Simulated scan of single mutants.
Amino acid sequence: MQIVATSRNLQGTGASRRLRISGNTPGIVFGAGQEAQKIEINHNNLFHALKKEEFHTSILDLEVDGKSTKVVLRDVQFHPFRPLVLHVDFQRVDENTKVESKVALRYENADKSPAVVSENGTVTPLVTEVSVLATPAKTPEFIAVDLSKLTSKIIPGLQTVKAPAGVKIIARGANKNPALVAVKLPEAAVAAPVAAAPTDKKKKK
């Protein structure tokens, strides 16, 4: 994805406030052994870009004053109750340096799995993105996960995900192999009560 920005010289609370009033959002670009650069970005373009998953997980092309730089989104500050982006941080990435970033998991073929076809289950994703370590060129937009063999008793974990060549998946937390999805089976039908056998009426004498 590409985002266009311009450099800014003014700084401080007052300057940032005036910048937001004019429809732009202040930001900063840092890293790669270079000095931090203050930038401003059109607020509406940035706000809509932030709604896209790939903007948070992909290597971005940031164009500042006509010069393009590879960056990743590092931090975003939102207004506590208004739909307003207050500040944004980008980190430069070198083409040959591996960087950690978030990549979405895309689940495929769940509708063809035994869990759905044979067991009539409902599949719910539990893990929607993973941290990966890779160079910008090798960082994928998403990683596909095939669920065609999914059953209610065979649930794939994070360690079963096959990352592309040159990409390493990083597991966080104590559980290094969390379940990727959950399968909810339909509730068992309640057995109907057995009707009592009719009693023979006594014959009248």
Results as ranks from 00 to 15, higher is better:
Ala189Gln: 14
Val99Met: 14
Ile28Lys: 00
Ser68Val: 15
Gly166Arg: 03
Thr199Met: 03
Ile154Gly: 06
Pro193Met: 05
His56Asn: 12
Leu62Cys: 01
Asp200Trp: 05
His43Cys: 06
Leu158Val: 08
Pro140Gln: 06
Ala174Asp: 15
Lys112Ser: 09
Ser7Asp: 03
Gly23Met: 08
Ser16Ala: 12
Phe55Cys: 01
Gln77Ile: 07
Lys102His: 05
Thr124Gly: 02
Thr128Ser: 09
Ile170Asp: 00
Glu100Val: 06
Ala36Asn: 13
Glu53Gln: 14
Arg8Lys: 04
Leu84Ser: 08
Phe78Trp: 09
Asp75Cys: 00
Leu126Trp: 04
Arg82Tyr: 07
Arg172Cys: 02
Thr57Leu: 08
Asp75Leu: 00
Glu53Asn: 11
Leu84Pro: 07
Asp200Ala: 10
Pro164Glu: 04
Arg17Cys: 08
Asp146Gly: 10
Pro140Ala: 00
Ala165Val: 01
Asn9Ile: 04
Gly157Tyr: 12
His43Ala: 04
Ala191Gln: 07
Ser101Leu: 09
Asn175Thr: 14
Ser16Lys: 04
Pro178Thr: 12
Leu180Tyr: 08
Val85Trp: 01
Glu108Gln: 15
Ala191Thr: 06
Gln37Val: 11
Ile143Glu: 02
Lys205Met: 01
Asn42Gln: 05
Phe78Gly: 10
Asp111Arg: 13
Arg74Glu: 11
Glu129Val: 09
Ile59Gly: 01
Ala104His: 05
Thr160Glu: 14
Lys203Asp: 03
Gly173Leu: 09
Val71Phe: 13
Phe47Ile: 05
Ile28Trp: 01
Thr199Tyr: 09
Val76Asp: 01
Ile3His: 10
Arg20Cys: 02
Ala134Tyr: 04
Lys102Leu: 12
Ile41Asp: 11
Gly121Trp: 07
Ile3Glu: 04
Asp61Met: 14
Glu53Arg: 11
Leu150Tyr: 08
Ile170Pro: 05
Lys38Trp: 08
Thr57Asn: 10
His48Pro: 02
Ile21Cys: 02
Phe90Ala: 11
Glu63Asp: 15
Lys102Gly: 07
Ala179Cys: 07
Phe81Glu: 00
Glu100Met: 00
Ile143Trp: 09
Ala192Gln: 02
Lys149Asp: 09
Asn42Arg: 06
Val181Gly: 07
Lys202Arg: 14
Val127Ala: 08
Leu50Arg: 09
Pro80Trp: 02
Ala134Trp: 09
Asp65His: 04
Val76Leu: 06
Leu19Asp: 03
Ala174Gln: 15
Ser113Arg: 14
Ala49Asp: 09
His43Pro: 06
Ser16Trp: 10
Arg74Thr: 15
Val29Asp: 01
Ser68Arg: 15
Met1Pro: 14
Gln91Pro: 01
Ala36Asp: 15
Ser118Lys: 15
Pro164Gln: 05
Ser152Gly: 05
Arg92Thr: 00
His87Leu: 02
Ala110Val: 04
Asn9Cys: 03
Glu187Lys: 05
Leu86Asn: 10
Leu46His: 03
Lys176Phe: 03
Leu180Arg: 07
Val132Met: 02
Leu147Gly: 00
Glu63Leu: 14
Asn120Ile: 11
Val29Phe: 06
